[in-house]
Amino acid sequence: MKNSKTTQKIAFFFLLLATLLIILPVGLIVVIIVVKGLPAISWSFIFDMPKDGMRAGGIWPAIVGTICLVAGAVLFALLIGVMAAIYLSEYARDNLLTRIIKLAIVNLSGVPSVIFGLFGLSLFVVFLKFGSSIIAGSLTLGIMVLPIIIAASRVALESVPHSFREVSLSLGASKWQTIRHIVLPNAIPGIMTGTILEIGRAAGETAPILFTVAAFYLPHLPGSIFDQAMALPYHLYVISTQVPNVDEKIRYGTALVLLILVLFVNLVAIIVRSKFRKKKKW
């Protein structure tokens, strides 16, 4: 008996150790970026245009660019994704077509991000003649996050109890009314969870925006969605590898701003989600 207890203790120790190891990289990333980046943060760093070939000044255009790109991508992906998820979980029968659709969604989520970039370049930039623009970048990012949004939305829709649908239908509501008034409102928290996960990815990806929107150096704000824009992840790449003699604190400051931006957008989504959760009464 004593022996097995010792074994158990050793096993627990190693399991705990492995779990603690997960905290380490997360903590280190945050600490290093905050410590090295914080000195650079100031109003002028955030709200000014870059100067001296990005070696001085601020990163405002990159912040605005990233916000526009993420907003466009999430808007597009939610619109298409939720509609597709409703079709798949509420209307579609199990046949060859829906199986092909589901297979396509699974495969889409396995495509490397640089492929999305090339795809966006050929479809939106060249074929649809959007040029290198916010709309092309947003749509490319949107397609990249679509599979997760669809998957999360389907799970959220399917987790709404079947009995709610039956009750609604039994009262003479149409199928669409049932979806609109009962199923969808109760699925929103789940849909938001999937969206929150994807906001961070859309904000941080470099490859999909590389060929579709990102400007190397553009010291003014975009005027419309058909303009090119700077974006934080690409800007970070540029000042870290392409421009010599950039102060280290500017690089880490940029990274810190990107982190905070993602955190902030997630926070908004989490607040929206908790509002809907409060409305949930079961």
């Binding site: 009995s163 709610f164 039956e166 239908l169 039994s170 009262l171 009962i182 109760n186 009464k281």
Partner: peptide
């Protein structure tokens, strides 16, 4: 039809 023929289920099933 369901507007004219209502139904009460076995379990109490309030909507959320």
């Amino acid at each position: 039809l369901r507007k004219r023929v209502g139904m009460v289920f076995a379990l109490p099933l309030p909507l959320p």
